[in-house]
Design a protein around this nucleic acid. Structure first.
Lengths: 197, 197
DNA sequence: CATCAAAACGGATGCTGCCTCCGCATGTAT
DNA sequence: ATACATGCGGAGGCAGCATCCGTTTTGATG
């Protein structure tokens, strides 16, 4: 039972076509109208019936998770760059910004993400990406802590929540200036105070 | 033109009755099902038709604002207690908690509040309460700054956003422990660092 | 108390979106 | 070419929103 599949039959050609069309269309609609966009409209524009959409993606979250897959890979790619940085504090900061942008991909995205982040929702397709992000954040936090740049009481989970909140606020139309101030505030909160006196 | 009204006619009795019934029922439904509750259901349970509901409260936000009025008064009452405190830093902290509880009154409340908080929505009935809260927060911030307990770069608006975010996270079912940590993080962010060395 | 007109009521209505179910067609193996 | 599994898609039931208009209620007036 390795990775190679094909148990019994070859998968039909139309299902792949439809799935691809749905994903492509859904991404466009999520971009334009946010995560609350009409699924019926997505199906129609993808040239399939509602039934087909729901068979491929039983819930809105499932569709969202599938669409997000692409973006997740971009995030991972970014991670490579970030890991090049010598300064772990700088790396953490950049990672937080990267996550924030990821959360801001579609308007309204932070809500389902937060809903999935609280564990005990094992069937929610968004839970896995969330958990990955949280533990990745924790890695950066720990590295920065080892370098004495971040307070010891901080957890990756905390900064995940913070990044998600900021994306949520941003999605509600707050001016970038206010966001910058809030980011500063949070940064002041997690940074280790230099014993400079 | 004082406060006494009665221009032309005496207001009809049924409108007051209906308005009161609607507010009472709406509050219950908001409590039980969140701000997204069915307005039709509210109307039905209040014993009026949908038309009557929409005449009294043209939008969901209008109804929400009216229901929130009561709670706002409780907040103001709390303010009196808080103002008694000698320590302006303690006062700020308590005020933030009070706001957070206010934002958590109904599940989903932070979203419409945030939407109203970005100005340039003068017709949104929630804008006024928001502005009041923001400037009240700013008062507490300034007092604490005068006492040298809060960093100079912080604005009331920032902490308003922070409190709203925390309420939003709370509403999404995150455990209280994570919230506490986040509150700590934010507090570390706005507090003036003591020149203690 | 009877009458009138303004004001408010409320439900029927049209609309949009969600999600399911099942007869039909499409594609794959023999 | 045939058979059969598999997937398709649209019709349809449901719920909620918001509006419009014929009817009722209510306060004012004599």
């Amino acid at each position: 039972m390795g990775a190679g599949e094909q148990r019994g039959r070859k998968p039909r050609a139309d299902v792949q076509r439809n799935r691809a069309a749905l994903l492509e269309t859904a991404q466009r609609h999520f971009l334009q109208h946010g995560v609350g966009t009409s699924l019926e409209a997505v199906a129609k524009e993808a040239g399939v019936g509602p039934g087909t959409l729901y068979r491929h993606f039983p819930t809105r979250e499932a569709l969202l998770a599938a669409v997000l897959q692409t973006r997740s890979e971009e995030l991972v790619a970014r991670q490579a760059d970030i890991d090049q940085l010598g300064d772990p504090a700088e790396a953490l900061e950049q990672w937080l910004r990267a996550m924030e942008e990821y959360f801001s991909a579609f308007s309204g995205l932070p809500d389902p993400l937060m809903a999935a982040a609280r564990a005990q929702e094992p069937d929610n397709p968004l839970t896995i990406p969330c958990d990955i992000l949280i533990s990745a954040t924790d890695q950066y936090v720990r590295a920065a802590q080892r370098a004495g740049r971040v307070r010891a009481s901080v957890r990756g989970h905390d900064l995940f929540l913070a990044a998600c909140s900021i994306a949520w606020i941003k999605g509600n139309g707050t001016e970038e200036e206010s966001l910058d101030r809030l980011r500063m505030l949070i940064a002041s909160g997690y940074r280790q105070r230099d014993a400079q006196a």
